[in-house]
Design a protein around this nucleic acid. Structure first.
Lengths: 187, 187, 187, 187
DNA sequence: AATGAATGAGTCTTCATTCAT
DNA sequence: GATGAATGAAGACTCATTCAT
């Protein structure tokens, strides 16, 4: 049941947003009562935290597999990270969407905790960029931090518009974005 | 008074988000009563619509000045559009933030209307890209639509993290992002 | 309306206690809705505070009239204070009952504030006793503080059992208690 | 286990009051689950009843030992009853406090039953007073019933303020109160 | 004896909205 | 233009209680 609640919540949060989704909505969907929800979760916020935590822990783990890979070039790593994020739109779509949007609704403490995780993800990207700069794979004069934000912008924004069943496939999108970032669009 | 309500609302929506800001919050800030609000606006949603509309109408107007400029190259135009969006973080900060976040809280009809405006903004970017492709300023084989989404991602995401009083100035950020997009980060 | 809410609440708190009385109970009794309650009071606790404050402020004022009287002997003052409390069972019955019972349901801050008022009332009694001891009206070796608690016990406990329409009138009860305290029951 | 539940409940009721203590609070404290509680008690109210019953049965038993004593004078008996109640603040503190406060939370039937026990306790005091009056130990014109209420007020009120580790010892308090009642405070 | 899951009625509170004045 | 009072629907959360295992 706990899992069912989590799944349903992810779906509903993804569809209507966190504040717009009431506990009633969640339990009605599952044909159980509010008491059931509160038997499994101490609060709505904690549920959101759990979702966040599950998602980002797994995400960072997969990211670090990429980052610490011995064979990939740094450019490959960036592409792989972009792929990681874009793929999740399909695989964990709603979960990913929830992740990228609802932080503002958390209390200061939880906000802080989540922020740390996100920072780590971002700093991992930054580290790859810096490595690329040193090894001559990337331009030497980049602001690694800003570029990392830029890459996250490109991918995270996709969660707002990308349809996995659209004209462009995930893998194509990965290629388009990674080329745009690595080689630019200028001729 | 209507203007004062609008301004205060933009500020509060920017700070706490749309759903988290109550009409009571707004009128308390202005030392008036709820009746006053409803004298000027038919609903909270309509207020949000007005804010959106004001903002985006002005934004598109400024974008089209750029797009139809006779002197700018297409690359310059893209840079100018990036500058337009980044500058607004400072100039119309809260308003811009509201614009980029609170769409989900609109009813379907209003959502639709806003979506059209946003689409137009995006299609204008797409048009510039296509022009650049034809004129040989940009690579010939780009997916103009996806690239437009990519550019919007980079800039819109900035609203979540960019501090105008930080280490990097707006103009520097514009340069960083436009170089990243036009020439890529690869060496 | 605010007054009506206060009055009804006093009645209901008196009958069923603070926690056992829901806001619903109060507004149902008045044929209004919960919104109305919260238009006039910020919280249930604040309502209780208001009731307390109203009651005790008035009570202390009347007590101090007695305490500072120039003609009364100290013994007369004690009797008058007993009368003050016993009379309130009839006049402000429920209010008095609420006052003497529901402190535990207040938050620490409000608890503190009420405690101060009560302490003042008690210390005023203590002061009268001490004056009586000095002036030879009362035994010289009393623990004024404990006696003050004793007197309060006798009167406050009455709120639990005394019926103003019973066999014993208020004034008779005052006489019985003040004689018991001043001259004792031993022969 | 049943005893452990009872003990813990007494403690918690004493600390936070009956309504403010949830069954969850009780079982959490004991590291068991709610099912366990309901295996041993049919309801929260019944638990309160049991506590009451246990306490008052024992109390009345001890009171009657005093009342029927052949050596004590009636004055001594009153003092002994006062001692009985004051001592219980220390010995059975929480239990006694619960007893003197939470009656209101019982259903009418249980309320009735408790009331009878309390009445008996009070009537026993009244009987002692009447005996004292007849035997010339006490003033002849007392309202024994009201005096009994007065004595109960003095002692029961102590449960609200008396600290056993304070400046005044239990035995001192007994002396103070019994002197106040028997000989009065007037000089 | 004890547990874990579920219930459902109830709690306080919030809030957008209405409307007579 | 603006106010004050009231509404009613909805919100998150609590809790005594039940019951199959």
């Amino acid at each position: 049941m706990k899992e069912k609640i989590t799944e349903t919540s992810i779906l509903l949060f993804g569809k209507k947003g966190f504040s717009q989704t009431s506990i009633q909505d969640i339990v009605t969907e599952l044909h159980v009562t509010k008491g059931t929800f509160y038997y499994h979760f101490p609060s709505k916020e904690q549920l959101l935290m759990d979702i966040h935590q599950d998602y980002i822990t797994n995400l960072i783990a997969r990211q670090e597999l990429i980052v610490h890979d011995r064979i990939y070039s740094q450019q490959d790593k960036l592409t792989a990270i972009i792929r990681l994020l874009i793929n999740d739109i399909a695989d964990k779509g709603p979960s990913a969407r929830v992740f990228s949007r609802e932080v503002r609704h958390l209390g200061p403490k939880n906000m802080q905790r989540i922020k740390q995780d996100r920072d780590q993800f971002r700093l991992n990207i930054e580290a790859v960029i810096k490595a690329g700069m040193q090894q001559g794979e990337l331009k030497a004069d980049l602001r690694a931090d800003m570029i990392a934000f830029g890459i996250l912008g490109v991918t995270n924004w996709s969660y707002n518009w990308f349809k996995t069943d659209g004209e462009v496939s995930e893998e194509e999108l990965v290629t388009i974005f990674s080329e745009m970032i690595l080689t630019g669009i200028g001729s």
